[in-house]
Design a protein around this nucleic acid. Structure first.
Lengths: 192, 192
DNA sequence: TTTAAAAATGATAGTAACTATCGATAGATG
DNA sequence: CATCTATCGATAGTTACTATCATTTTTAAA
């Protein structure tokens, strides 16, 4: 990795770190790009070369890539929900504390900043389309099959319900367990 | 209803009509508030007295109020999913063509304008909280009960999956049926 | 009908998130 | 060392949105 790329990575990290600190200190809406740029020692224009929007500093999940891959890797004997359960545990389980911390902050910010919550919700719904692909393959169906989409939708729905729990004090530690319990509940027919 | 209120209603309708027409003709992002104001014969400042944001011209659903009421009105013998099925059919079934048309356009716009889709997704996830209340009461549980939230989340998830079907050509006529079929599928255990 | 209160509007000025462009600079490459 | 290229900063511009205040329009009371 050359000097150029190293510098880029450092700048990117600096922007995110400083932005998050400012968001924490004075709130998301009250923090301007100009302030973030000043704190990260770059020009405001440079900010947008690293992050397309202010929201993207907070929201950048690799979930859209990791999750379908992990589902694809599960043994075919598992049903769709069991496969996703295993995939989630496998993808989120070995998450380092820094990542967990970050996830927690994203959730907390979602409570205070509507734009972030909206963007997060949008990316989550997009996961329906993404997850439909491996699920369809496992079931020998088309990703456009309504039944496949329903299964993906229901899983995304319970995951969201288990993640975004008001008042968003969000102990990130219990998050993976809460999601697993939610999927288990769905798998067993959502008895009340 | 006095003259003042009548005028306000007319202005509000004019803004929405003209805005939708412009969105249709040249796209959501390419339409400015200034253009909408000019078309509706008001000042740009007045626009914001009627709609807090540009997005709100498109998104204003009464679903958050209607749905829980309709759920509450179902006979206690029905299970949670059956109750929501009945409530949805009851709330969305007798929708006049104009409303359906509007819903269809909102869905179509969600495909083209990310901000609208994000806002719509956000309001949808909020419906989880809203629906948890009548569901909890019916089951004699707390709205904070994870199990209740899971059921609400799963239903919202399948409804979204049945509504937001790419490429959003969206025949609004079949929408209610698609939602009902999705909830039925969920009720019967999401077999694939 | 006249008048006073209240509400709605328009005009103006300002902020902040972007976008586009372009010259300067710093790093990679031969 | 020289050249090429990626990155950066500066600048100017657009647009959504906020705040304020004077003006007009509607309502209600005298």
């Amino acid at each position: 990795m050359g000097l150029r790329e190293r510098k880029k990575a450092r700048t990117r990290a600096a922007i995110r770190t400083e932005a998050m600190r400012l968001f924490r200190e004075r709130g998301y809406a009250a923090t301007t790009i100009e302030q973030i740029a000043a704190a990260a020692d770059i020009s405001p224009a440079t900010f947008f070369r690293y992050y397309p929007t202010k929201e993207d500093v907070v929201l950048q999940d690799d979930l859209d890539v990791l999750l379908p891959e992990a589902v694809e890797a599960q043994p075919p004997s598992l049903g769709p929900i069991a496969a996703v359960r295993a995939a989630v545990s496998q993808a989120l389980g070995p998450m380092d504390p820094a990542e967990l911390e970050r996830l927690q902050e994203t959730i907390a910010l979602s409570a205070s900043a509507p734009e972030i919550r909206a963007r997060a919700a949008d990316e989550f719904t997009r996961t329906i389309e993404v997850m439909a692909v491996p699920l369809a393959r496992r079931a020998g169906r088309s990703p456009d099959d309504p039944a496949v989409r329903h299964v993906a939708g229901a899983m995304i729905g319970v995951i969201w319900a288990a993640t975004m729990v008001p008042p968003f004090t969000g102990d990130a530690a219990g998050l993976v367990d809460r999601i697993d319990a939610a999927l288990a509940h769905l798998e067993q027919g959502l008895a009340l």
